Amino acid sequence: MDIAFTLEPWHWLILLFVLLGAEALGAGGFLLGSAAAAAVVSLWLWLSPDMGWPLQLVIFGAGSLLLSFAYWKVFKKVNNKSDNPELNNRASQLVGRTVVLDQDLPAGQSKLQIGDTLWKVESDRAVPLGKKVSVTGHQGMMLLVREQV
């Protein structure tokens, strides 16, 4: 019966690789702390083989929490860095673009064709057909436009 309550270092190594495999499927880094905790318990158990399974589980649980929190605090900023932060923000990509109007643009909110998309736009004044407008900013997905002088 004692063998059912015995955890060996290789048990923790297997758990380490299972957690790394699950992380590879897209956990977003949250299983890395638990995988590192399994590695710590495996190493600690290899150095001190008389450690009981309740202490192993306590070390694994505490290590998982601490290492996951440390990963989140330290690497969150690193993972969020991008060489193109506006990649998926189409409205901000259009800021600075100039468009020739193919219809009159009334003051206030209306719609304007830019490229292949019909955008909600807001203009501070009416702009007649044929004039150029520039996208000066955006509020959510509404573009702010101004007549180019």
Rank of each mutant, 00 (worst) to 15 (best):
E122M: 13
N79C: 02
P106N: 09
L105Y: 00
R90D: 06
G96L: 03
L112S: 13
L101T: 07
Q113W: 09
V133Q: 00
E122G: 05
K132Y: 02
D102S: 15
A126E: 12
D83Y: 12
K81A: 02
W119P: 11
G96Y: 00
R90C: 01
V121D: 06
N79D: 11
V100W: 06
E86G: 05
L129Y: 09
S123F: 04
V100P: 11
V99C: 04
D83M: 09
S123D: 10
Q93H: 05
V100K: 14
E122N: 12
G130R: 13
L112Y: 07
N84G: 00
K120E: 10
A91W: 05
Q103S: 14
S92H: 10
V133I: 15
D124H: 13
P85K: 02
K81Y: 06
P85W: 01
G108I: 08
K120H: 08
K132T: 14
N88A: 10
E86Q: 11
K111T: 10
E122S: 13
I114G: 02
K132F: 05
S110L: 09
L101V: 08
V99P: 01
G96Q: 06
L101H: 08
Q93I: 04
S82C: 07
L112G: 14
N79G: 03
K111H: 12
N79I: 07
D116H: 09
R97I: 03
T98H: 12
Q109E: 15
K132L: 07
S134L: 11
V121S: 08
D104M: 06
D104V: 04
I114Q: 09
I114F: 04
G108F: 03
R90S: 03
K120Q: 14
P128R: 14
E122W: 11
G130I: 06
I114N: 02
D124E: 14
L94F: 02
P106E: 08
R90T: 05
P85F: 02
D104R: 05
R97H: 13
S82E: 07
R97D: 06
L87W: 05
S92I: 03
S82P: 02
D104K: 04
P128S: 11
P128H: 14
Q103H: 13
N88E: 12
T117R: 01
V127G: 03
P128L: 14
L129T: 09
L94Q: 05
V95R: 06
L118E: 12
D83N: 12
K132E: 11
D124M: 12
Q113S: 07
W119I: 05
L112F: 01
L105M: 04
S82D: 07
Q103M: 08
I114P: 01
V100T: 15
N79H: 11
P106I: 08
R97G: 00
P85C: 09
N89R: 11
K120R: 13
G115R: 04
E122L: 07
W119C: 03
T117I: 15
G96A: 11
D104L: 00
E86K: 10
Q109M: 10
A107F: 09
R90Q: 03
V100Y: 04
A126R: 04
G130D: 12
I114K: 07
N88S: 11
